[in-house]
Design a protein around this nucleic acid. Structure first.
Lengths: 344, 344
DNA sequence: TTCTTTATTGAAAGCGCTGTCAAATACGAA
DNA sequence: TTCGTATTTGACAGCGCTTTCAATAAAGAA
């Protein structure tokens, strides 16, 4: 069906070895022969069969990207960054979502065990022992995105979220005179939630502010649930002059909307801030004060790291830390000098 | 390195043929042998090498998804739907963005010519003769998403956007008493823009309303540019009691924000509506009246159609039309009875 | 008993490619 | 002339798998 190396060889009147050499720019092939072969390749529009090649070389130039979900701006940006970087380095990207129907472990092993991909970028939103076992059993290089798996050698790309979260809480306390801050996170076991929550607690503690029993909520990072929660509690929050620190922009937007729905002005009566600095932060009214997370860069860096390891399997495991930064906009109730640059 | 069929054969004390038969559930293998082989497979955690298999079978169970871009909610949802459906049907998905650095044609031929993918879902935002030529040269099955390429046999999934756009314009005229409607679209050559613009013109014409020389703008579907345009024109629009029909939610959000920034209340002083019904439509204040486009479903349907053709190469080309629907929310200035269901 | 028929298994070809090794050729040196 | 040394090319093994075809064993028919 497709044109094979043999067709080219016949057309150029050489052996398949010679064609292979021309294609792979291996040992020197005589100039005139090379030109003949190249012409034949072009005329037949020949492209080496990836399977035959993969079978010989034991590599595919494909890398896998396994995410907890594919939903929303956050993952979209990661995919985008990863895809761009992969192409740049000559790789194809296979995207998988772990959370859908099957558990992440089966997806992971399915992707890694059949030889299709040379390596994997995997993002784990929570690490249980099962995930750990699966990951430990993965025999091809992988880099963990936004997480760390103790006891298993691997590269990783992480965000210094604690810094960003602490900066945010500090901003609310120092610049906006917050006395009470309510934290709305994702699931209790979610890694990002844990980091951000801890930084929040620590910073509160350091400022001698208490975290009350009704000051921490665990939702699921979605707009709708945050809206529902907000709809119930927004009055109380406004009455007690509480600030709301949501662990992502979507939830912040949900709470903002709930407040406005109930006639509570943001930021005048209630201050709400988010996390991630997705496009949502700029599309909600008022614009969200948030913490910038370099999403696209995360994807790209993870791919880059993986490809480096693919090239040099015995380099020592690297942990790349990307920075998160406070972005002050309107929803925290303080028009800052930073605003201009943040608007960009 | 990896465990091969031979390892399994040795362990189970049979020939590789038998192992292959067990794996592929082919001819009946004796029960006791089968169990022995299955045990060996499990113990060794054997998975057939995709390259060897692909080489024999001439198929990979991988399909390609080529999109104009990977940015934002819209494409994110398409990827999500496509990915879910692909997995369900036993396929892997390779995602590529065409627009980034290289032109879509080179991406397309790169993806299709090396045998890696069994078929392609391709979304083209505009069709020039070059794209057409490339597409005509693709030798594997492909389905065109949200577009049609004359003269080339292929399946396609399209949205009846004209219907949705017309319904929107009618809504603005009939329910909201619009006399002037400004259309803000994407590039002039963009297929979606063309469809929506034409439906807009036609519906305006039918209602005996004129489309003035300053009533149509061509931007790029982005929030920022729409914000900028809005910032300049929002006063005039409000003064002339104009409605704004943006060709996607992002641009609508940008215009809404520009208006609010300038102290023009939406929808009281200016009415703005969007298109696509992305999550953005629910996250902007006021919530956007928009046209629902089944994004996730588009991805899923395209994949499904492709897989059907892969199974039965000689079925006649199918054109699947998905429906778009008006979703009335607040930004068009009319609280409708539909609102409840739309909020969902 | 001998011949068919059926169930089960193994041997081996080959998918398209890379890479090793040896063959063929050319050319200058001894 | 004969030999050594590059230079260039082709033959062929084999990557891990599927699949055809033949071999073997088991079981019934004649």
């Amino acid at each position: 069906m497709s044109v094979s190396i043999e067709d080219v060889a016949k057309k150029a009147n050489v052996s398949i070895s010679t064609v292979s050499r021309v294609v792979n720019r291996r040992n020197i092939v005589n100039d005139s022969t090379r030109k003949r072969v190249e012409l034949a390749i072009q005329e037949l529009n020949y492209r080496p069969n990836v399977f035959a090649r993969g079978l010989m070389l034991q590599q595919s130039n494909i890398i896998g990207l396994v995410l907890p979900d594919l939903h929303g701006e956050f993952y979209s940006e990661i995919i985008r960054g990863a895809n761009r970087q992969a192409r740049e380095l000559g790789y194809q990207l296979i995207v998988s979502s772990a959370g859908d129907d099957q558990d992440s472990n089966s997806v992971l092993s399915a992707v890694s065990d059949n030889g299709l991909v040379d390596g994997i970028v995997v993002m784990v939103s929570e690490i249980d022992s099962k995930t750990k076992t699966t990951l430990a059993g993965v025999k091809i290089p992988f880099v963990v995105l936004d997480g760390n798996v103790d006891g298993v050698r691997h590269d990783s790309v992480v965000i210094d979220q604690r810094y960003g979260a602490a900066a945010m809480v500090k901003h609310l306390i120092d610049d906006c005179s917050a006395k009470r801050i309510v934290f709305v996170g994702g699931h209790k076991t979610n890694l990002d939630t844990i980091d951000r929550l801890e930084a929040y607690r620590e910073t509160m503690h350091r400022a001698s502010l208490t975290v009350g029993p009704n000051d921490v909520y665990h939702l699921d990072f979605n707009y709708e649930t945050a809206y529902d929660l907000g709809y119930q509690l927004v009055d109380e929050w406004a009455a007690t002059n509480a600030f709301v620190f949501a662990a992502n922009d979507e939830m912040a937007a949900g709470i903002v909307d709930a407040a406005i729905e109930k006639g509570i002005a943001v930021p005048e009566k209630l201050r709400v801030v988010g996390f991630d600095d997705t496009r949502i932060a700029m599309m909600t009214r008022p614009h969200l004060t948030t913490v910038h997370v370099p999403m696209s860069n995360m994807g790209a860096s993870a791919v880059e790291l993986l490809c480096k390891r693919l090239k040099d399997p015995k380099r020592s495991p690297t942990k790349l830390t990307l920075h998160s930064d406070l972005v002050v906009r309107e929803s925290s109730g303080m028009q800052s000098v930073l605003d201009d640059s943040a608007t960009h």
